[in-house]
Amino acid sequence: MQIPFFQRFAGPTVNKIVGAGNGPEKAAAERIIQHALAGLPELLGAAVVQLVSGQTLATYTSSREFNLSKVLGHNTEVVRQQQKALAALQLGSEEQLEEILITLNTQLHLLRLLPDGQRFLYVAVDCRDTNLAIAREVMRTCE
């Protein structure tokens, strides 16, 4: 039996795409994560986040220990700060941020701006389960 009050203490939902909000934006975010999961079934976690507000539109995690809510706000700020740094370089309008890669000993964390420039896709994978080229290609096709 699932009691909503106790679900707060159980941690994130695992192996299920969880949407936030409502309407077409939520449905689109869920489809993006479904596509990422189809290409990378060994995903540790994935999320679609609005860049301006930092609001999470949809998430997926394969482990309770991999708590996306703790990291997504920081990742939103990483994208914003990198955009500011690139603007300071004055490279011109043809140069736009596409992707940020964070490499750890056993994990790859990728942040890819979606074509509208208003949202980004976050994906975390284990280096032993996939490689960077596969992860990047799957993310590119999620758009």
Rank of each mutant, 00 (worst) to 15 (best):
I3W: 14
F6E: 11
Q7S: 15
R8L: 14
F9C: 10
G11F: 02
T13N: 09
V14W: 06
V14M: 08
N15G: 05
I17W: 10
A20E: 14
G21V: 11
G21D: 09
N22P: 12
E25T: 07
A29R: 04
I32E: 03
I32T: 11
Q34G: 15
H35K: 06
A36E: 01
A38T: 10
L40K: 02
V48E: 05
V48I: 10
V49G: 01
V49M: 04
L51G: 02
Q55F: 12
A58H: 00
T59C: 09
Y60T: 07
E65A: 14
N67Y: 14
S69Y: 12
S69F: 15
K70Q: 13
G73Q: 08
H74G: 14
T76N: 14
T76R: 15
T76Y: 03
V78F: 07
R80W: 03
Q81P: 06
Q82E: 09
Q82M: 09
Q83D: 04
Q83N: 13
Q83F: 05
K84M: 12
K84A: 11
A87M: 04
A87L: 08
G92R: 03
T103I: 10
L104P: 05
N105S: 12
T106L: 06
L110G: 01
L113W: 00
L113F: 00
L114S: 02
G117R: 02
G117L: 00
Q118C: 11
Y122V: 02
V123D: 01
V123W: 00
V125S: 01
D126L: 10
C127L: 11
C127H: 11
N131H: 11
L132S: 13
L132Y: 06
A133F: 09
I134V: 13
I134A: 07
A135Y: 01
E137Q: 10
E137T: 13
E137Y: 06
T141R: 13
T141I: 07
C142N: 06
C142E: 03
